[in-house]
Design a protein around this nucleic acid. Structure first.
Length: 356
DNA sequence: AAGGACGACAACCGCCAGGCG
DNA sequence: TCGCCTGGCGGTTGTCGTCCT
């Protein structure tokens, strides 16, 4: 076996990468019959690939390297094209809206990056996956959420997951304002009171003394479990229109959470069905109207793609957010897609579909 | 200024499913 | 029906840049 290592200028950033040329017998079975180069792509290789695909299309990927004059395997060419060279790719950092979309869809799909990426025009599965692993995942953990299930982590889980001083670092880097959502605890709001009594949140999450106020806007803070507390905002009139309605909305962007108290990253997901993921479920005396009006489940045979206007859910929409232009492919909405341990609130799942 | 830690991201690996002979 | 080939996907690794001490 011979490996030839050369340093070449790689990729867009001009990185110097190690390029390895593999002799026969190495690499994928699909490209084991030819010498293949590995490592970062040089601008020349990119140019060859782009020229070839632009002129002829990719056709059979296994034949692309030969036709394009590249010492790469077909798989490598395909990945390079899909993840980097495709003309319709959107480069640059993810927007807040994209971030919200990823979180929302991931809550339903789990790590199905290709499916998630379909809801983000110009983004690749690899990009989404990297962004999730490097940013969102850590943010969720820092907020006391299990990134796999989107449920609240128990304090000891949080402690274990955060492993030392990770939290403080994350907070300093990513969490500008903390994840806070508000709910009306005024006596007249019976649903919310019931929800609180049903939630059985870990005691550390709730400063119960704050619940005793006559008329308060209580605030959950999820940025750091050690800091979780009810905060009495007294009579914040600005919050009166953004009181939390448990279980009434499914996608975070439609949740009537006070945007003034949400972090820019939009972790409103706590307000949603994932809240009940640890086996508790809100028991409202009166089901919210949205649920009562829940449309009948549409057979996947009849319709696989739901496109529902945000307008259908009064009070739950946020015009600037989320899924306004995307759709959910309900081929994936089978039971197998619900991550183990994730409480499956079918109504909420449906509602997410309708919010989309 | 130097070196280590960490983050971002490109690329690879291995598995799986579907098509085809 | 079986085996091979190929494309697609998710998980993981490797590399470089930046930040921090």
């Amino acid at each position: 076996m011979m490996m030839t290592c050369t340093n070449e200028c790689g990729g867009e950033g001009g990185r110097v990468g190690l390029v390895v040329i593999l002799e026969e017998g190495m690499g994928h079975h699909c490209c084991s019959k030819q010498k293949v180069k590995r490592g970062l792509w040089s601008p020349e290789e990119d140019e060859k690939l782009v020229k070839h695909i632009t002129a002829h299309g990719h056709g059979c990927w296994s034949s692309v390297p030969k036709l394009a004059g590249l010492q790469r395997c077909g798989k490598s060419c395909r990945l390079r094209w899909i993840n980097y060279l495709r003309p319709d790719l959107k480069r640059g950092s993810f927007t807040e809206q994209e971030e919200r979309t990823i979180i929302d869809v991931h809550r339903i799909l789990g790590n199905r990056w290709a499916q998630i990426a379909k809801h983000l025009p110009g983004r690749t599965d690899n990009e989404v996956k990297n962004f999730w692993n490097s940013v969102i995942k850590k943010k969720l953990i820092a907020q006391g959420l299990d990134p796999n299930t989107h449920n609240l982590l128990s304090p000891h889980q949080t402690k274990a997951k955060n492993n030392g001083n990770t939290i403080s670092k994350l907070n300093s880097h990513h969490d500008q304002s903390g994840s806070v959502f508000t709910m009306d605890t005024s006596p007249g709001n019976k649903e919310i009171i019931d929800a609180k009594s049903t939630l059985s949140l870990p005691s550390s999450y709730i400063n119960s003394s704050a619940l005793n106020g006559a008329s308060t806007i209580a605030t959950f803070e999820f940025q750091n479990p050690s800091n979780l507390a009810w905060t009495d905002h007294g009579t914040h009139s600005s919050h009166q229109q953004s009181m939390m309605e448990f279980s009434s909305c499914s996608s975070m962007e439609s949740t009537p959470i006070s945007t003034s108290s949400l972090p820019s990253s939009g972790f409103g997901i706590l307000a949603e069905n994932c809240m009940w993921g640890n086996g508790f479920e809100p028991c409202f005396d009166h089901a919210p109207p949205q649920q009562q009006q829940q449309p009948e489940k549409v057979s996947t045979d009849q319709e696989k793609v739901y496109r529902v206007s945000n307008h259908e859910f009064n009070g739950c929409q946020n015009a600037e957010n989320g899924f306004d232009s995307s759709s959910i492919d309900f081929e994936f909405m089978d039971s197998a897609l619900v991550p183990p341990g994730m409480y499956c609130n079918v109504n909420s799942m449906d509602q997410l579909a309708w919010d989309c």
